[in-house]
Simulated assay, not measured.
Amino acid sequence: MHFTENISNKLSELITRELNYNDDKKEIITYAIETALLFVLGSFFLILLGYSLNALMPTVIAAFFGSSLRRVSGGAHFDTPLKCLAFGTIVYSFLGVSTKKVVEYDLTNRQILIFLLLISLLTVAFLAPVDSESKPIKSTSFKYRLKIFSMLFVIISFLVVALVDSELVIVSAVLGVVYQSITLLPVFNK
């Protein structure tokens, strides 16, 4: 049992005992607490690392776009949420630093960004959603909806590239989407 799971169990035990909830409600509360803790921890470490690398804004933007797409597309999983959190923090911070360098050296090319999004759209169209053994998606209609939402999110990213005037924002957004699309590849989902 990892430390966020341990804290979640203790807090849900306190809450459910006080409210006289059954085990089903306790499980829901435990899951909600653990999810909230992981979000807070992940956000804290992402902001801390992005700030310490002097790339806070592009790190947060890349993480927002990547994690938003991940919500509907799924993707590669680690065996613990903390490993996923640590890896994601490092990758999104690296993307933030990379974005700053691309913009700083004036290497931004909208055609390349659009091409990368097109590859991401095709990847999402063919592979999303990617589920896991621990969270299988059984409903075909739900899978179809997740695929459509994933594709719509990439299309919205195209609009960001077309309409936003900030190179920092568009490069960060595209790198976040591209990274998340890569996690859909079968090589990362065995």
Rank of each mutant, 00 (worst) to 15 (best):
H2V: 11
H2T: 11
N6A: 10
I7G: 06
I7D: 01
L11Y: 09
T16V: 15
R17H: 15
E18C: 14
L19C: 08
L19I: 09
Y21D: 09
D23T: 11
E27A: 14
I28N: 01
I28D: 02
L38R: 08
F39K: 08
G42E: 06
G42K: 01
G42H: 07
F44V: 14
L46S: 03
L46R: 00
I47L: 15
L48E: 07
L49H: 08
G50E: 12
Y51R: 13
L53Q: 11
A55N: 04
A55W: 06
M57P: 10
M57C: 12
P58M: 01
P58H: 02
V60C: 11
A63H: 03
A63W: 09
F64Q: 08
F65P: 09
G66Y: 00
G66W: 04
S67H: 10
S68L: 13
S68N: 12
R70I: 05
V72L: 07
V72I: 04
V72S: 05
S73A: 14
G75V: 02
A76M: 12
D79F: 10
T80H: 03
C84H: 05
A86C: 05
F87N: 03
F87K: 00
Y92E: 03
S93T: 06
F94H: 04
G96K: 02
G96V: 05
V102C: 05
E104C: 12
D106Q: 10
F115A: 15
L118W: 07
T123V: 11
V124Q: 02
A125K: 11
V130C: 01
D131C: 10
D131S: 13
S132R: 09
S132D: 04
K135D: 10
I137Y: 03
I137E: 08
K138C: 09
T140H: 12
T140M: 14
T140Q: 13
S141M: 07
K143Q: 11
Y144A: 15
R145D: 09
L146Q: 04
L146V: 04
L146N: 05
I148S: 09
F149S: 10
M151F: 04
F153Q: 09
I155V: 15
L159E: 04
V160K: 04
L163C: 11
D165K: 07
D165V: 11
D165R: 08
S166N: 06
I170W: 00
S172D: 03
L175W: 03
L175M: 08
L175F: 06
L175K: 00
V177D: 02
V178C: 02
I182G: 00
P186V: 10
N189T: 09
